[in-house]
């Protein structure tokens, strides 16, 4: 019993790292642009398919497909931003949240249906020669692909952290999150910052999708579930804290996994939404966020 509980906690941590990665992308885009991109889950789905097809048609190792998936997501992100979201920049904040949510909702339906047309409704997953390999520690199984995914997710977030802290572009993004008008007054072109953060969000979603396709499975309709997960984790971690969001993802993963152990799989999603509500009521700034002054 103890071992199977431990197994569930470990599985929760492994999937939670991907939740965190997905949520950091959404949170970054939202923090900078105040665009509520509810098509974030679909971007994740596209990243998953990009990786899947690179693996299937070119025979590339799934972890080596990440660079090409990243390039693909940068292009997709730039295209969607220019086509759909760039017009929303000038709106006031509340109108912007509403309008971008509507646009993104439409976009999610379009992307889902295009993916269904192109790739059918079948579940797909990348199976490599080492897919079945697992380390065993005290009776707990650690599948290597999921373990590697956790490492990749962590490395991505550290890289993002360093990018935001050390580079001029990163500092411009942080300045825009804090006070876009003051950022404008030091000469930052906020249209460019918006574009960059939208692309970063798409890129992080794509990497998360690629990792999902290798450790789990992907399907054209997976987007909504992932958008909800990312929203819950974003609220749980609190805006503006990358590590907080990552830890928030792991907390959600573990909670879901342990809940389905005790109460059965049907309660997995319910517990996530319950956490969402509890955090909103009792700690609206998130577990790791700071109160906005």
């Amino acid at each position: 019993m103890l071992i199977s509980l431990a197994q569930n906690v470990v599985s929760g941590i492994l999937v939670g790292a991907l939740y965190g990665l997905a949520a950091v992308g959404l949170s970054l885009t939202f923090g900078v642009t105040k665009f509520l991109n509810v098509a974030h889950g679909e971007l994740l789905m596209l990243g998953g398919y990009a990786s899947f097809w690179a693996f299937t048609t070119l025979g590339m190792d799934p972890f080596l497909t990440l660079p090409s998936t990243i390039v693909f997501m940068v292009l997709i992100g730039a295209l969607l931003y220019k086509l759909l979201f760039s017009r929303m920049v000038k709106l006031t904040e509340d109108v912007k949240v509403k309008n971008t949510m509507l646009i993104a909702f439409g976009l999610s339906l379009i992307l889902q249906n295009v993916a269904l047309r192109l790739w059918t409704a079948d579940d797909r997953s990348i199976t490599t020669s080492y897919s079945g390999v697992a380390l065993s520690m005290l009776g707990v199984r650690l599948p290597v692909v999921r373990l590697a995914s956790l490492v990749v997710a962590f490395v991505c977030l550290m890289a993002l952290h360093l990018f935001l802290q050390r580079t001029y572009t990163g500092k411009a993004i942080r300045a825009t999150v804090e006070d876009w008008a003051a950022a404008t007054l030091v000469g930052i072109d906020i249209h460019k910052v918006y574009l960059e953060s939208f692309i970063l969000g798409a890129l992080l979603a794509g990497v998360a999708g690629a990792l999902v396709s290798v450790g789990y499975s992907i399907v054209p309709t997976m987007g909504l579930e992932w958008t909800l997960i990312a929203l819950v984790v974003m609220v749980l971690g609190g805006l503006g804290s990358i590590m907080g969001t990552f830890v928030g993802g792991i907390i959600l993963g573990v909670t879901q996994s342990v809940t389905s152990y005790f109460a059965g799989g049907t309660y997995r999603e319910v517990v996530g939404l319950l956490i969402f509500l509890l955090v909103l009521v009792f700690r609206p700034q998130g577990l790791f966020g700071t109160k906005q002054g």
Binding site: A175, E178, D179, A181, A182, G240
Partner: peptide
Amino acid sequence: QVPEGGRVFTGM
């Protein structure tokens, strides 16, 4: 421009 109240980036 130095805007009213300075509006420095307080988190940095």
